[in-house]
Design a binder for these strands. Structure first.
Lengths: 145, 145
DNA sequence: TTAAAAATGGGGAAAAGTGGTGAATTTTGT
DNA sequence: ACAAAATTCACCACTTTTCCCCATTTTTAA
């Protein structure tokens, strides 16, 4: 289960290092070695473990009717944008330039763990829309706090 | 499984190079050496491995009733437009000029991997209709994000 | 404070992409 | 039908990018 916020940097070679806490999120022994990265909703990227990605593609994406232009665009957005990124021995991965551009990532990065997925943001972009306590007021009751 | 976005160029000789990641998409050892290219839905071309193309033709196209004029047109569009393109030792293929014209391809190209097929776009054309995050909002629930 | 783990920076080898040349085949004109 | 020209095709060589690993710095924990 992914959780938490981290802020590594994009180095000169386009690498982002994935924190060990996230790599260990699915069992202490087996570090995550590979992530599927693609366009996220909002101006960010999302990354999945292979297992989650494959399940998602098979169950949600492949059944979509290709006669609907909107479905075709969605598949292009998600699968056409996807990249299987291997982590090097130090836990870093190279993110393709088209994805970096989409998310507006140039230097500092914010990585969020969100149960089954990871979100990757440009720090500047994320600070613009970072959620604060106020947004929770309408939810507090139904969440049971 | 094809995935990802790539942007090679059409060179002076009408060759487009297919990225190694796509050529390896169906097993590390066996690089794709040949693709069947034909008209795509929307203003692009689509390309298949022989296996996928044959299955598609047999299961979807051949059963179509030839008494329906719409079916006859579909077969002309897909089979009449198809070309078996071999890749050279460097992974490039020559695309017939009628297909280039259909897709409006003159210089820069965008290639998308979409699980069982590859789409080939003119870069200019694709930028005009490139999907963004907004298109996904209506799907978020049903896709399970 | 010290040791271990994690993050960061960098360099070298290998792979992939690109341009180009010569042979072979097809087309054209006489 | 034959020769010349043009186009196509296959492969070679160079440039660029990518990948993988080593070394150093920084952080964390004992």
């Amino acid at each position: 289960m992914f959780m938490g916020e981290y802020s590594p940097a994009l180095d000169d070679k386009g690498r982002v290092s994935i924190p060990v806490k996230l790599r260990k999120a699915f069992g202490e022994d087996a570090l995550v070695e590979k992530l599927v990265v693609t366009h996220g909703l909002d101006k960010c990227l999302m990354a999945f473990r292979n297992e989650e990605w494959n399940e998602f593609v098979e169950k949600k994406l492949m059944p979509l009717s290709q006669s609907d232009p909107k479905n075709r665009m969605s598949v292009r957005f998600l699968v056409g944008g996807a990249c299987e990124c291997e982590l090097d021995k130090q836990g870093r991965m190279v993110i393709p330039s088209n994805l970096l551009k989409y998310a507006g990532i140039t230097n500092d990065v914010i990585i969020l763990g969100l149960f089954n997925k990871i979100e990757i943001w440009s720090k500047e972009v994320y600070e613009e829309c970072r959620p604060d306590g106020a947004i929770m007021n309408s939810f507090a009751d139904e969440l049971g706090f």
